[in-house]
Design a protein around this nucleic acid. Structure first.
Length: 897
RNA sequence: GGGGGCAUGGCGGAAUCGGUAGACGCAGCGGACUUAAAAUCCGCAGACGGCAACGUUGUGGGGGUUCAAGUCCCCCUGCUCCCACCA
């Protein structure tokens, strides 16, 4: 229980200096809503009683609820996207607390990453100190929002008491055989000078961070075997009912499971005899094997060199060279022509026994399936185009059901159908033939059923300094040796020179990497790569459950008591990367016995972007700061006079369309910012920032202030009214007000329970305040008291400072007062919702013709009679009896002539 | 090319199970208060016609189911997001 400052404090204190909100009179008025005068005071008060936001272990009987925002990178600047994210989560946390849950609502910092290192290179600052300064700055900005965060659990991934456990977990993966090194063609970012995971390269082959065109390099790198969990990650998606369909679909696409078969084509030697060499292809259409008229290898396929005939050698080498020099962009261009050359060898089609040529072509990818495909031009559009170009035979083996043949002018027939020219499989459907042919291949030793994934193993090593060191040691005699547990953490050295050249600073620091092998004691070399920052963020939500544990990353008991996260909130940009990696981590840790659940996030809300109004000169392509646009109704470039394009786009410095949260808070207060951002758009949709709307939101809070102020002046104080009110003795105005109050309770509760519709929840609060404006002055004291109390309690999660301030002003002078945030969430009184009469809509032939007021408890027959007797019926039926009457009690009567 | 989502006034957006379309807010208009303005309060407001009562029409377009469709079914168009020479 919290002791509030006495109500008198308000009158005593000196308001800090502030700029009055736009449109506010400069006149000082003691009863005016001045957020600048109250918000900081309450924040300090809440902070002093920190226990308020810390889940209470003594309340173990309460239902635990874990509300989590995706933690930010500490750039040093809070932007509106952060504000939206954390305010949404805060409202959820506050409501659950008022519902009686034991709520965990933590915050931390995703603090490794390149910006700190770049600052070190450019300005010579220490990345750790730079990061800590940013964290302090952002924490202060966050605290101005009035978030009910439990700061005692704060963590930063770059602090060794955290990354020690990232290293420990890495070694768990290593022990399980899920972390390994391999030589691979990987994505190299030439600007950031490091490798990237597939997930960090966009569709155009650009780095997610630097935007540079990614190069392919063959390097030895560390990987996590996420492909071993591909099936689970895919199959568990339908169970994530609290996730947006969109995110689940994106993950399913990314995993990209396809079911088919591997089929083997025996290589035939020059004399026409079968050799020992076989080419294995992957196909999803084993039913079309009888139509395979050639086989194609990727140019990078390992067998290309040995199988190429002498007379094709020059052509093949030239072609491979050409392909390898193509950039990622050229290879994925929209209208890619398919090119290839025969390599002068033949293979035997295992189904027909026929000899068919072996080609290489640029449309076959080395790293998908087996790097080889069978060419079935009649039933695959790519094969069709390729076959037409190089005059390879097109053999139809599938016909559309119910027809004799398919004309090939329009391209290949890729739909399922019925088999022809397929020997003993003729007449089978595609579906049956897939199974039958795969079974035959298996029995006869030329193939097997096979599942292939688009998902690749996760490349986690980075050649950068500011990351979590990979805790292994390379020894010439012992191989890769994990750093022993008692030597963790492997700390990042601080005395490092940042030149920005010559690769990772760690690799240049011999005193750091030269170590003795923990196994044999011989001179050995410490791994100098660090981990992808997504490693650090794949388990932080687990650490919050037990943030100060010094013997384990978290205890099983703590982690199982809080997780899975009940409500996770963050941006859609993590739909694949972070959310997939975290699911993978959780499943591995479950298999290691470290956690007792297999999905980390029960419900997920992906909030939309915050967009700012953007002015662009279509002729010069330049963005114009809004401040330079003189007349927004006729926006023109001040220097050229050109008419500007106006649109909303994600806020960014380069487009001059950003709004600084600090400026908004200075001017209107955090409560207005919170309310506006929740009200302006549904949480999943993009939000268009509009200063006029912010102004409107501020006016709403002012209205509430005046409403409560007026009631206070009338002598209304907090009391114990509510359900004990005797319905019979209430005046019509009282009844009306009570109905509004309890309707609001129902509506706001529903909006916050199911689909999390904060925008309509706020509009319900507005409706309630409108109704109170109408009835409060005449209401009897208990009803007015109930209305005020309910309004403030419902408002508390949204505008915590205002609600607390008004609550404290309504407190009686005697006895301790309990914070509005410690009040129980109200429950609607059904009897207050009951009405004596309800409007009944009269339709004639489905069209609304009017309505009449009828007793609420009237039965169907009565309603029909009332409708038929009404003037409306008389007018529209012209005296004729209707042929049919549909009665929907409580809603309408439809008269059909 | 494959898959997901969306389409409602001048604008952002509401609308449980199919049951009064446009809640709530912004912008706008009219009025009160004021010497005046701001703020505040009251009122109007989809479109078309009408002095009005009222009528017609209306949720991207076209069909359908139903007493009744923004909502369900089929076709089309546009926007948007994800994946993509993935065999």
């Amino acid at each position: 229980m919290i002791r509030l400052p006495s109500p008198g404090l308000w009158h005593d204190h000196n308001p800090p200096e502030y700029s009055p909100p736009v449109g506010c009179s400069a006149l000082s008025d003691a009863s005016r809503y001045q957020p600048q005068a109250i918000e900081e005071r309450w924040q300090q008060h809440w902070q002093a009683s920190a226990a308020d936001h810390t889940p209470d272990p003594s309340q173990a009987g309460k239902t635990p609820f874990y509300a989590l925002s995706m933690f930010p990178y500490p750039s040093g600047n809070l932007h509106m996207g952060h504000v939206r994210n954390y305010v949404i989560t805060d409202v959820i946390a506050r409501v659950q607390r008022m519902r009686g849950c034991n709520v965990l609502h933590p915050m931390g910092w995703d603090a490794f990453g390149l910006p700190a290192e770049n600052a070190a290179i450019e300005r010579g600052v220490d990345p750790g100190a730079w990061t800590d300064r940013n964290i302090a700055a952002m924490r202060a900005q966050l605290q101005r929002l009035g978030l009910s965060i439990d700061w005692s659990r704060e963590l930063a991934t770059c602090h060794s008491d955290y990354y020690r456990w990232t290293q420990w977990l890495f070694l768990q993966f290593f022990e399980a055989g899920l972390a390994y090194q391999k030589e691979a063609t990987v994505n190299w970012d030439p600007i950031d000078q490091t490798v990237l995971a597939n997930e960090q390269v966009d569709g155009e082959g650009r780095s997610w961070r630097s935007g540079a065109l990614v190069e392919k390099r063959k390097l030895r790198q560390w990987f996590l075997k996420i492909t071993a969990y591909a099936d689970q990650l895919l199959d568990d998606l339908p169970r994530l009912e609290g996730w947006p369909e969109r995110v689940r679909t994106m993950q399913a696409n990314w995993i990209g499971r396809s079911t088919g078969a591997e089929l083997e084509f025996t290589v035939v030697d020059g004399a026409g005899n079968d050799s020992a060499e076989r080419i294995t292809v992957f196909t999803t259409r084993p039913d079309t094997i009888f139509g395979a008229s050639y086989v194609v290898l990727a140019p990078e396929h390992p067998l290309v060199a040995s199988l190429t005939s002498a007379d094709q050698q020059i052509a093949v080498e030239a072609f491979c060279d050409l392909v390898s020099r193509q950039s990622e962009q050229e290879r994925t261009a929209d209208d890619r022509p398919k090119r290839g050359v025969p390599i002068g060898a033949q293979v035997r089609n295992p189904a027909t026994g026929e000899l068919i040529p072996l080609w290489i072509a640029d449309y076959v990818l080395a790293d998908y399936g087996t790097g080889a495909v069978m060419g079935v031009p009649a039933h695959d559009q790519r094969d069709f185009v390729f076959a037409r170009q190089y005059e390879l035979p097109v053999r139809q083996v599938i016909i559309p059901e119910g027809s004799d043949e398919h004309a090939y002018e329009g391209g290949a027939w890729t739909e399922p159908g019925v088999l022809i020219h397929s020997g003993r499989f003729d007449g089978l459907s595609s579906t049956d033939a897939k199974a039958a042919i795969t079974a035959a291949a298996e029995a006869e030793g030329w193939g097997r059923a096979k599942v292939t994934y688009r998902l690749r193993d996760w490349l986690i090593s980075r050649q950068r300094y500011w990351g979590c060191p990979i805790p292994v040691i390379h020894c010439d005699s012992c191989g890769v040796v994990p750093v022993p547990d008692e030597q963790l953490p492997v700390e990042l050295p601080r005395d490092v020179a940042f030149s920005g050249k010559g690769g990772s600073p760690l690799a240049q620091l011999e005193s750091w990497w030269r170590v003795a092998c923990p196994c044999c004691g011989q001179p050995a070399r410490r791994e100098t790569d660090t981990m992808d920052t997504f490693m650090c963020s794949s388990w932080y939500f687990l650490r919050y459950s037990d943030p100060h544990n010094t013997v384990l990353p978290f205890s099983r008991e703590a982690v199982d008591s809080w997780l899975p996260v009940d409500q996770y909130v963050g941006g859609i940009e993590h739909a694949i990367l972070h959310l997939l990696y975290s699911r993978f981590f959780t499943k591995v840790l479950r298999d290691r016995g470290l956690v007792g659940f297999d999905e980390p996030f029960s419900r997920l809300l992906t909030q939309g972007m915050v967009q700012g109004i953007t002015y662009k000169n279509p002729h010069t392509g330049k963005y114009i700061p809004p401040a330079e646009v003189a007349d927004p109704t006729d926006p023109r470039d001040p220097s050229t006079g050109d008419v500007l394009e106006v649109f909303y786009e994600k806020m960014s410095k380069s487009k001059y369309n950003g709004v600084d949260p600090a400026v908004v808070i200075d001017r209107y207060g955090a409560d207005t910012a919170r309310m506006f951002i929740l009200f302006k758009a549904p949480p999943e949709k993009d939000l268009e920032w509009d200063d006029a709307d912010v102004e409107g939101q501020f006016r709403f809070l002012q209205r509430i202030w005046r409403l409560v102020d007026g009631a206070h002046a009338r002598g209304i104080r907090l009391g114990h009214p509510g359900n004990a009110l005797d319905a019979g003795s209430l005046s019509p105005g009282d009844k009306e007000l009570r109905r509004a109050v309890h309707t609001a309770i129902t509506a706001v509760s529903e909006d916050l329970e199911g689909e999390l519709q904060f925008n309509t929840a706020v509009s319900e609060l507005m409706k309630l305040s409108n109704a109170m404006g109408e009835h409060l002055a005449d209401a009897s004291d208990p009803v007015a008291c109930e209305a005020l109390q309910t309004l403030l309690v419902l408002l508390a999660p949204f505008a915590p400072h205002l609600a607390e301030e008004l609550w404290s002003r309504l407190a009686t002078d005697s006895g301790p007062m309990v914070s509005v945030h410690r009040q129980a969430w109200p429950v609607a009184d059904g009897s207050a919702l009951v009405r004596d009469t309800v409007p009944l809509v009269i339709q004639v032939k489905g069209k609304v013709r009017g309505s009449l007021e009828v007793p609420a408890d009237a039965d169907r027959a009565t309603l029909e009679q009332l409708a038929l007797a009404s003037e409306i019926a008389a007018k529209w039926l012209e005296g004729k009896a209707p042929s049919r009457v549909i009665v929907v009690p409580g809603k309408l009567v439809n008269l059909v002539p």
